[in-house]
């Protein structure tokens, strides 16, 4: 017994089981709180993305989770869509604010990105993101290399065309999916 595998490894096995049970207990006890924290974090972005809104309500429309942006009286003033898609280096996580009839973008924020430092990561700068404010959603937004000539053009970040085009594409796709979902 003393030299068998079990004789040598029983402590590791017992500890694994005990720790496993303890971690499962901790996770079960704290999970609701952690989920609530994450939700509050997302809802906290709504006022800066949808003018007049103070909170939001999650809903699944057309296969994606979206938030109805509500004002103090609980009336809907717009939408917020958490949208993700492929950037230049990795997945981009965005939040898109829209007005109530989905005709215009009201705000854009970048939650997570790993684009090239100094080039692609400039998509997070307010000066670039603010171009999206007030843009119409029809026709699709397009990225240009020069100063925008029409209302639906966004000037790309110099040296980061792919990152810029990705952001515009993710916004277009998210809006289209929500519009499609609402029509059904």
């Amino acid at each position: 017994m003393k030299n068998s595998y079990i004789g040598q490894a029983w402590l590791v096995i017992v500890l694994s089981l005990v720790f496993g049970a303890a971690l499962a207990g901790v996770q079960a006890a704290l999970k609701p709180r952690i989920e609530q924290n994450k939700l509050n974090d997302t809802l906290g972005q709504i006022p800066s993305l949808v003018p007049g809104a103070t909170t939001g309500q999650a809903e699944t429309i057309g296969g994606q989770t979206v938030y109805r942006a509500l004002n103090d009286q609980g009336e809907q003033v717009g939408w917020m869509i958490p949208a993700r898609g492929l950037g230049f280096a990795d997945v981009l996580d965005l939040l898109v604010g829209l007005n109530k009839d989905l005709s215009r973008v009201t705000g854009l924020s970048v939650l997570e990105q790993k684009e090239t430092p100094g080039l692609g990561d400039r998509i997070t700068e307010p000066r670039w993101r603010d171009q999206f404010k007030g843009k119409p959603t029809i026709p699709d937004l397009v990225v240009t290399k020069t100063a925008p000539k029409s209302d639906s053009e966004i000037q790309g970040v110099t040296g980061a065309t792919i990152s810029s085009v990705s952001v515009a594409g993710i916004v277009n796709g998210a809006v289209a999916r929500l519009r499609e979902g609402l029509r059904e």
């Binding site: 402590l11 590791v12 694994s16 971690l23 952690i34 924290n37």
Partner: peptide
Amino acid sequence: LKPHLRILVFTLTIAAFVTIADRFLAAYMY
């Protein structure tokens, strides 16, 4: 402790407590 398994036990113990601390921070100091 068995001499040749001690590092394994240390790592297991540390990992368990770190995970508890990580979950606690996510819940109370988000």
